[in-house]
Write a protein that binds this DNA or RNA. Structure first.
Lengths: 242, 242
DNA sequence: CGCCCTGTTGACCGCTCTCAAGCGGCGTGG
DNA sequence: CCACGCCGCTTGAGAGCGGTCAACAGGGCG
């Protein structure tokens, strides 16, 4: 986390996507206990093995949690959107690398302060608890998908989830903050398969791709059926892609 | 959760595998706030969709968290051992089914009481927090494995993890509480592939299988290399197979 | 203008899935 | 006590999906 700390507290109040936890945080200790830091795309927030000194709350932008293995295999565990907490790890060292996907801002809460605050502030404690259990339940869906679905189902699920994240109701088009390699590593596929599958969905008329980063959903009904093929429950409100 | 509640508080003190959280729980409210329930193999603790009235602490035996899809695909998200908490979900309904793998016992904590207790008992709050963040970090390894490894690597990883769970130090042989189908659904493979891969490890001389449920590790060095192929960090102490 | 980076497309291969048969242990009932 | 059937597991043959390797296209930027 060798990045200049640039306090930008006003960003907290400017960002429109803030959630309850973000509200709680910013209203309670924007100046004192949290440090606000901004990142350029690709910049690292924490690296694997770094000491677990801070927990992070995403304020603006998209971040990713990455694990890269010795032999180069890469798995993205989650994408974090504003309101999501990340870096909550039990050990003294981070097991995941957290990086900015797009330009973004986080609030860094000292681990100690965060734990202490949880004990004296019931609302904060509940928010953190909710956040982390929600991360777990997202991991369940993610795992089911990676473990048991075809490439087409995975990509449909991914797009469907992104479209559902748009504020308010489901969006007809999605802006992809991440590049193909990130999608591949999130879905447990190769970049070629992701690309081919995009083409396949396009040929079938389910989506259109005006640019590589923009996906228009032409047949939400069919996309949903594909996306839900490996899931029996209705899509629950998801705060992050993860 | 239509199972007769059979209080067996003595089991809590008899079980040798209890952990800090279990200790905390049992020492603090074994009689008042927690209900102790035992299950036969295969019995359901909670079903998917059941209201999230209780959180559970495994006291004895092995449990599994399962998700079965509409079209029959099945994914096991975690195996829970004594000291692990499960059923911690953010929504009002469970997203996972929790079942006993072997005969086992859980302490059921009312969700309300658990949340309330977290607020007034720092030690308990820390234990729960540790437990759940640990579950998240296990999910990371699990996902990396399911998303990026060969069948052989997955099974080696699974056996390696089980052997590392033995109390004290790494065990030379492992008793499998679960059957092949559970292993397959945990690793994102088919039962045939699991079976073939066991045979393959056997032929290579890495393991021996005196019975189908017992695995003797003959070449821990080679097994570890396979298991660690997709991981760069040393195996961290894992409380559960999950 | 040319390089680089990201994404797409193609050909081929191999791992795992699918479908199917066979095997062994165990419990039950004759 | 043995025969039978059930269940969990193993083994085999074949097919398909996605991975691998490689070439190419397009856009941004120096």
């Amino acid at each position: 986390m060798n990045v200049a700390v640039r306090p930008r507290v006003q960003a907290l109040h400017a960002a429109g996507e803030l959630l309850n936890l973000a509200d709680v945080t910013t209203s309670c200790f924007p100046y004192s206990e949290a440090v606000i830091v901004s990142y350029a795309p690709g910049q690292e927030v924490v690296g694997e093995g770094d000491p677990t000194d801070n927990y992070f709350l995403v304020v603006r932008g998209v971040f990713r949690a990455v694990k890269v293995t010795r032999d180069g295999r890469r798995q993205i565990f989650a994408f974090y959107m504003p309101g999501d907490m990340c870096g909550l790890e039990p050990d003294d060292a981070h097991g995941l690398t957290i990086e900015a996907v797009s330009a973004g801002t986080v609030a860094a809460l000292s681990r100690q302060a965060c734990r202490a605050r949880m004990l004296r502030d019931p609302q904060f404690n509940n928010s953190v608890f909710d956040n982390i259990t929600r991360a777990l339940s997202r991991a369940v869906d993610h795992m089911t998908m990676v473990g048991r679905s075809s490439a087409e189902e995975r990509l449909a699920w991914f797009l469907w989830m992104l479209s559902g994240r748009a504020r308010g109701r489901r969006a007809a088009s999605v802006e992809l903050a991440m590049q193909r390699q990130d999608i591949a590593d999130y879905l447990g596929l190769t970049i070629e398969t992701v690309s081919r599958t995009f083409t396949h969905l396009k040929v079938q008329g389910l989506v259109a791709l005006p640019t590589t980063r923009r996906v228009e959903i032409l047949r939400p009904d069919l996309l949903e059926r594909l996306a839900a093929a490996d899931r029996d429950a209705p899509i629950r409100a998801a705060r992050a892609v993860g």
